[in-house]
Simulated scan of single mutants.
Amino acid sequence: MVELEKNPPQDDIVVRAENVCRDYEVGDMTIKVLRNVDLLVRKGEFLAIMGPSGSGKSTLMNMIGCLDRPTCGAVYVMGKNVNRISDSELAKLRGMEIGFVFQSFNLVSRLSALENVELPTYANRRPGIDVRGKARELLDLVGLSERMDYKPTELSGGQSQRVAIARALVNNPSIILADEPTGNLDSKTGEEIMNIFTDLHRRGRTVIMITHDLQLANKYADRVVYLKDGVIDDRATKVNAA
């Protein structure tokens, strides 16, 4: 098994999953989606999570993203056990520490690019922060300084994903979660988006990405974790060369 050190410094770990299970009740049936998953994610790591459809990738991402809680075991995000904090504390942790980038962009069609980037700050407003200025700065960072006033319907897929990345960064999160971020993009645009993630990683961001693309995972991620039938396949999990 390829793994991190047995006892890494605790302040170096941003996500820790211990013996995590997730079951769903469907009628009289219990569907076991995750089974005894253990995972550590270091600060500043670029981790890719791979696996076939139904392997539990999105469920694990939901656990890490504080969108769901495990049936058994424990998930710690920035040192906090997501099972032991209130819903309001969980929402605050999710809003302040995690930035989400989705395959389908999830932009609000009636808002401009600038307004979409500002959106996550409404629930988690930091005192003394110039939100409009921060949003402009981030759109400039992703190469959309001339498209700030455009609505999603006036943007290409690649431009929309750049807006989504800027939106994910607006609260200065510790972790970026990207679920198939290039899945709806052509190869050239997908490479441009991955170059943005690479730049964020070089700046010290922790990036956790779900992908079906092995070549993409091997090219950009520090480490690749494979899920199969709700468990981590230790034989396939590997650390990529620097």
Rank of each mutant, 00 (worst) to 15 (best):
P181E: 07
T198R: 15
I208V: 12
E191P: 02
L119R: 01
S174A: 15
L169M: 14
R167C: 06
P181C: 06
N184E: 11
D149P: 06
P127Q: 14
A135C: 12
Y122Q: 11
N171G: 02
R132H: 14
G128K: 06
A168T: 03
G143R: 13
I196G: 03
V131G: 09
N124R: 04
T206N: 01
G133E: 10
R205F: 14
A164G: 06
M209P: 05
G204W: 03
V142A: 12
K134Y: 09
H212E: 09
G158K: 11
A164N: 07
V170D: 03
N218P: 00
R132C: 07
R125N: 11
T211M: 03
A217W: 01
Q161C: 11
E180W: 04
D179V: 03
P152M: 08
N218C: 09
D199Q: 15
L144A: 10
R202K: 15
N218I: 01
H212L: 00
G128C: 11
V170E: 05
V224D: 01
N218F: 11
R132I: 11
T182H: 07
A178D: 04
L214W: 07
D140G: 12
N184S: 10
K151P: 11
D222Q: 06
A168R: 00
T189Q: 09
D213C: 01
E118M: 15
G158N: 10
P120K: 04
A221N: 06
T153W: 14
T211R: 01
L139G: 08
E154C: 09
G204H: 02
I196L: 14
L185M: 05
E192P: 00
P173M: 02
R147V: 07
V163F: 11
L227R: 00
N124P: 02
I193H: 05
Q161M: 10
L227A: 07
Q159L: 08
L177T: 01
E146D: 15
G190A: 07
P127W: 13
P181W: 06
K151V: 11
M194N: 08
G190F: 08
T121H: 03
L138F: 13
E118Y: 05
P152H: 09
V207S: 01
V170W: 04
S174D: 15
L119C: 06
D140T: 12
I193T: 02
V225T: 05
E146T: 13
F197A: 00
S145L: 12
N172F: 07
N218L: 12
L177I: 03
I165H: 06
N172E: 15
